[in-house]
Amino acid sequence: MPYLDFLMTYSSRFIDGTLITLGQFGLAALVAIVAALISGLMKMAHSKTMRAIAIIYIEIFRGTSLLVQLYWFYFVLPLFGFTLEKFTVGFLTVGLCYGAYGAELVRGAIQSVPRGQWEAALALNMSPAKRMQRIILPQALVAILPPWGNLMIEILKGTALVALISVADLMFETRQVNNNTYLSAQAFGTALIIYYIFARFMVTPIMRWLERVMARKIGRT
């Protein structure tokens, strides 16, 4: 079957899968941002309990495989009485996993803000919360965007694993097409190209654009 015919025949499956992948990606990215911010800040807190909770979360998710986490959340968590939709398990797990990596980025970015900024804010008698919110976080945001761009690509790639708990994403649909047709090069090749286009021509340019916007806002152009 010529490649064009193949594409025409199976386009709807690829499109459906792509939409699910994009949904997984967007939601997982959101979860990762929230989890990274909370646990990154908690890891820098004065309270030992807060720090311990953050460290346990970070080390568990960074110390094991995303695939192990997915299976565990999908097969084992229901035994504890939490039964979640597989779609939800998918983006939650991917988000929590990469949120743990993001936590280190958050911490690094906050620590990259020069000490003098803390001191100047204190000299203006700003409260710790105000110092963080008004002075440190905006500057940390500029520092975190470049490494966060790489993390976004990892999140996009990570969503492919949700196919293994039967979420009908691009990876899943591609396998179905492959199993129906045995046209492996066409099926997997098409998916590779779709993932590549999203990573290279959507995620990366958007992150670059954000970097530029934030740099301009901070007056560093």
Binding site: G116, E119, A120, A121, A123, I135, Q139, I218, G219
Partner: peptide, 13 residues
């Protein structure tokens, strides 16, 4: 009390 620093420490953003 107010203070001025050797390296200014203005808020860049």
């Amino acid at each position: 009390i107010g203070m001025c620093f050797q390296h200014f420490n203005l808020f860049p953003h």
